[in-house]
């Protein structure tokens, strides 16, 4: 196997190297790639969509259809992880509680439903991590800033790098940070798996639904210009706003899918004890 692998790689490598020699000069402004399509995007982005960030305008408008499926890919991954890993909820055999003031750990066997958490008694994992106040407080302190930053990234995708996807990932990462610094059970209690799943579907739905709305208004799918009467702006601004709407959808979807995947991966489907 190793030998075959090495041979294949040698072959592929030689092939690639031979053909890479024929490329246009690196960074050549006159190569076909830079002269055929892209000038249109660069020169018309402002006039067509009023979005200075061409990447955003190409991403969400000119090639918005691609991006819709990009979001769907993420949703698919979330669904796939859930589908592959999620285990049915089972009656818990043992539950650990910790008496916070004394630090005594109590193990309860064969109880029906777990008692509620309280300030004094705290439910903990089997692999218990002592409450690390540094990590915990720092994360808690940082969380809102990360989130507001993420929302800023989503909202300002038009003018600076960023957009729905990046913002969504950061949002998701904030929740993951919360899950890491606290524990998974608390996080799941705050954002349940069900809501994560529904939000992820809803995020893509915002995107596709915006497109479908355009169809209903009698224009092509995802042609945000059709939204102009609804938004009360001209067509160019309608495109700009349409892009924002779909970016929000992307952010919602990506955030919740990231959370969802993390829930399933970090607990191997049991959703009780995470990383």
């Amino acid at each position: 196997m190793k030998l075959i692998g090495k041979m294949t790689i040698l072959l592929c490598g030689i092939l690639l190297i031979v053909f890479a020699n024929k490329f246009p000069e690196f960074g050549d402004p006159h190569s076909p790639a830079s002269t055929h399509l892209s000038p249109y995007y660069i020169e018309h982005t402002m006039a067509d969509t009023a979005v200075p960030n061409m990447v955003t305008s190409v991403l969400a408008d000119y090639r918005g259809y691609d991006t819709m499926f990009e979001t769907t890919v993420i949703l698919t991954a979330g669904l796939a992880c859930f589908f592959l890993l999620r285990l049915p909820e089972e009656e818990e055999k043992e539950i650990y509680f910790r008496h916070v003031p004394t630090g005594v750990t109590i193990r309860i066997e064969e109880c029906g439903a777990a008692p509620e958490d309280s300030d004094v008694f705290q439910r903990i994992d089997a692999q218990w991590v002592p409450r690390d106040i540094i990590i915990r407080s720092t994360s808690r302190l940082l969380m809102p800033f990360i989130q507001i930053f993420a929302l800023y990234v989503v909202a300002h995708g038009h003018h600076s790098p960023g957009g729905g996807f990046q913002g969504g990932v950061i949002l998701g990462a904030a929740v993951i940070l919360f899950a890491i610094s606290h524990n998974l059970r608390t996080t799941v209690a705050k954002i349940s798996e069900t809501s994560a799943a529904i939000m992820s579907a809803a995020g893509v739905f915002i995107y596709a639904g915006t497109g479908a709305l355009c169809v209903m208004l009698g224009e092509n799918f995802l042609n945000y210009g059709a939204l102009a009467p609804l938004l009360g702006t001209d067509r160019v601004m309608a495109r700009s706003h349409g892009i924002l709407i779909v970016e929000i959808g992307v952010a919602l979807a990506v955030m919740s899918v990231m959370i969802w995947i993390y829930y399933n991966l970090s607990s191997a489907g049991k959703q009780d004890e995470g990383l």
Binding site: D132, I134, I135, T138, S139, L141, L142, F145
Partner: peptide, 16 residues
């Protein structure tokens, strides 16, 4: 500022 908050925390996490 963020790095000043996160860096010691990260360091602490690694030490831990």
């Amino acid at each position: 500022v963020f790095v000043f908050i996160t860096s010691p925390t990260a360091t602490h996490a690694i030490v831990d």
